[in-house]
Nucleic acid binder design. Sequence first.
DNA 1: TCAAAAGTGTTATGAGTACACCCATGG
DNA 2: CCATGGGTGTACTCATAACACTTTTGA
Lengths: 233, 233
Amino acid sequence: MTQYQNQTRMLAAVDCIIFGFDGESLKILLVHRGIEPEKGKWSLMGGFVQPGESPDHAAIRILKTLTGLEGVYLEQLYTFGEPERDPIERTMSIAYFALIDIHRYEKQLSDEYQPEWFPLNKIPRLIFDHNEMVKMARAKLQYKAALHPLLFELLPKKFTLPQLQSLYESVYGTSFDKRNFSRKVLSTNLLVKQEDKYKGGSKKGAYYYKLNAKKYKANFQAFLNIIPNAHLL
Amino acid sequence: MTQYQNQTRMLAAVDCIIFGFDGESLKILLVHRGIEPEKGKWSLMGGFVQPGESPDHAAIRILKTLTGLEGVYLEQLYTFGEPERDPIERTMSIAYFALIDIHRYEKQLSDEYQPEWFPLNKIPRLIFDHNEMVKMARAKLQYKAALHPLLFELLPKKFTLPQLQSLYESVYGTSFDKRNFSRKVLSTNLLVKQEDKYKGGSKKGAYYYKLNAKKYKANFQAFLNIIPNAHLL
DNA sequence: TCAAAAGTGTTATGAGTACACCCATGG
DNA sequence: CCATGGGTGTACTCATAACACTTTTGA
């Protein structure tokens, strides 16, 4: 026996919701779709899963193609499989979300797709069910970042507390008390204060911090409570 | 254009991790696989996604076939797509986990598969990557039940606080202080005390409770904190 | 009357939250 | 010297967690 009989084969695609933070707002990276149908319309970056390739590998490959980045945070989000979601042919899409340091992103790599960053409140109409994917990715990011130290993946290796707070405020669309915020963040002992300061944001300058990589990996599963009133989300 | 060219089509399956609680321990329902390869070996209940059917619908259909139950709690868990996971032919499996009231389960429906309930610490060797699926389902159940009022789905409509506590203790493999447990559970206002008692567990009898269905639906997203020290999980 | 499970209250500790002033510096 | 953003401490409230005795009733 070499095959299962009388079953339907279908395509498997991967689509990536790529988050970045530029210091102002949380953004996602969209591309112009390269193939028909809907060629040229705004779309998530995606591609078909290849023979011999797992969905995880496909997501890593696609991310590398578009951004030039490897080793970034990548997590399977959800599999979208409505029969008519792609009008051409039945296609399952396994959606992944990625968190990248936007400053490491290499625009020149991906001229083919004319990618652009869009703030989350200005996402255009996307093809197929991609808007739904974005919505779900955002909800999951909010959910997960309230419990785990996830958002560091969006920042450079050295960052300041005001930058970190501004990132959390972007993700949750509110503002936090900076005294409580810094106390909570520092109480995790995940951050190591550096000697030098970032002077771009103010005259006084703000101390840089780095992640304590060991504790970060060990404590990733630990529940945090950075977000006040997370139960009201 | 009616097809995408030069791409690999593959099979899409759904596998269900079905949890039940019999008052003693948390169990999952396994079947004897009905087709080659590995026919007769222990397996999760599953099947191929049919044309015109979404993965969600496939999961609902499969669950109905095996248990006779409809309207049960069902959630997409993860998509497993390693190229060699099924030796016969490339198959993506979209895993779902289900929570059912084990007493509503109708054994006679499913003689074909000779299903059996296995406690989680006695899961046999399963086909393909199904052991990994079970492990992930269990972790997700623990994770999610610490934050959301999920485990009620495993109990009958009327249940007692000792039953509920025993369920939580099974899921987390520890014991809780019953005073703190009942205070926390009741403080959610999700439970409505009934007039009658369940006399099976003791001479004194324990009051039945029912879920307040409205609040349950409205508050499902609300974070609970039933599990002491959930951050240490 | 006794064994076995159900039910209930208090206290101490720690976490969360609200809130306001001083500091450093470049212009 | 002053405007701007960075950095810090305190007090109150509430949730958590530890802990033990009384109640009920069938056998």
